[in-house]
Each structure stands twice: as structure tokens, then as C-alpha cells.
């Protein structure tokens, strides 16, 4: 370009000016950038409000023969700003294992998080996404199943003789061990 036409400035003065321009420019730009970053990272400090016991169904709603039934888990839930007093936050399969005992599974496949279906004819759970299959008791029943672990069993409590309360919780998909989503 036309560099020869322009005056030379002393190297030190030039460097000082350049450094100042960069530093001052960066200072001006850093404030909006930082506040944007703070807000962007806000989700990291959010916690799920799952993990509490929820009344899911009555014992009489479960067949005696131990065939699982699907139930919604309805409880209060806060979605960012909206406070819902009763809204489904997930679903569980419940099945009788005795007169007064019930087993509960989270319906979500531990492999990648799809909704697992129950096949009456095959007496097993089947995931529609990657064909993981699980036995009635939730264990993997096929060595080729892509899921790293069996269905996530949830703690069940029978209250007042007939109420089935489930401590509902989601777990991280893709791990061999159950890690709660917090």
C-alpha cells in the first residue's frame, strides 16, 4: 500500500499506542461479553426437583398376575418461571411381585433415553429406538442388547394399605451404573 507516504513513528511510542488500543478496546468489549457468559452458564446451577416420593396409583389398579402397567407420575413441577401444581414429570411401569409388594421401573431406556414399551406377547420390555430388550424384572435379557444396564428400578412404598408411592428419579443414560440426574 502507500506505506512510504506515511511518517514513521518511534517504535516505542507505536507499541504503547497499539497496546493501549488493544487493552482499552478489550476492556470496552469485555463487559457485555461477560454478562452474556454469566447468563449463558446459568443452567449449570439449576437442579431438578425430582427425587421426591409421589403417589402414583392404587394397588387395585394393578393386575394380580404381575403384568406391568404404565402410570404417569404427576406432581408439582417448576419449569423455569411456570409453577405447575400437578403435571406429569415422567412415567413408570408398575407390576405386582406379591400381595402387598410392587416393583417400579422408570419407563426411560437406560441406553439413550427412549420410551420403552411393554410387549404382552413376549412378556418383556422393548425399546423402539435401538432394540434393547428387558425381562419382566427389568434385567437385560439379551446379551446383544445395546443398553449398558437393566431398566432403572425406583424405590416403592405402600402407604395406607393401598397407595403406591414411588420415589421418582431419572438416571443418566449410557452408563453401566445408575447415576441420578441432579
Amino acid at each position: 500500500m502507500q506505506e512510504n507516504r506515511l511518517p514513521e513513528m518511534s517504535a516505542r511510542r507505536g507499541f504503547f499506542k497499539k497496546a493501549s488500543a488493544v487493552v482499552i478496546g478489550a476492556l470496552a468489549g469485555i463487559v457485555p461479553g461477560l454478562s452474556a457468559l454469566f447468563v449463558f452458564l446459568d443452567p449449570l446451577r439449576r437442579k431438578t426437583n425430582a427425587g421426591e416420593s409421589v403417589m402414583v396409583a392404587s394397588l387395585s389398579a394393578l393386575p394380580e398376575d404381575g403384568v406391568p402397567r404404565k402410570f404417569s407420575v404427576v406432581t408439582s413441577h417448576t419449569d423455569a418461571w411456570t409453577r405447575n401444581p400437578d403435571v406429569p414429570i415422567g412415567a413408570v411401569y408398575l407390576r405386582r411381585t406379591g400381595q402387598k409388594t410392587v416393583q417400579a421401573f422408570n419407563v426411560v431406556c437406560p441406553h439413550a433415553g427412549c420410551f420403552v414399551g411393554y410387549k404382552v406377547d413376549r412378556k418383556s420390555y422393548h425399546c423402539p429406538c435401538h432394540n434393547s430388550t428387558f425381562a419382566l424384572d427389568g434385567r437385560i435379557n439379551d446379551p446383544k442388547s445395546p443398553s449398558p444396564r437393566g431398566l432403572d428400578e425406583l424405590p416403592v412404598e405402600i402407604r395406607n394399605e393401598v397407595e403406591i408411592w414411588v420415589k421418582f428419579q431419572n438416571f443418566r443414560a449410557g452408563h453401566a451404573e445408575k447415576i441420578p440426574v441432579s
Partner: peptide, 26 residues
């Protein structure tokens, strides 16, 4: 003054002005 390039003199002036604008906003 004689001619200058945009960098660094005018950039410095612009940067100072931007900082002043940012300070006003803050």
C-alpha cells in the same frame, strides 16, 4: 497533522471512545 494510518492512532481514539460509551452504559 500529516496523514496517518487508521491503526493505531485512530483505533486508539476509537477504543477510548468505545470505552467511554461502555462506561456510560454501565
Amino acid at each position: 497533522k500529516p496523514d496517518e494510518y487508521f491503526w493505531p492512532d485512530q483505533v486508539l481514539k476509537d477504543a477510548v471512545a468505545c470505552l467511554a460509551v461502555m462506561a456510560t452504559i454501565l
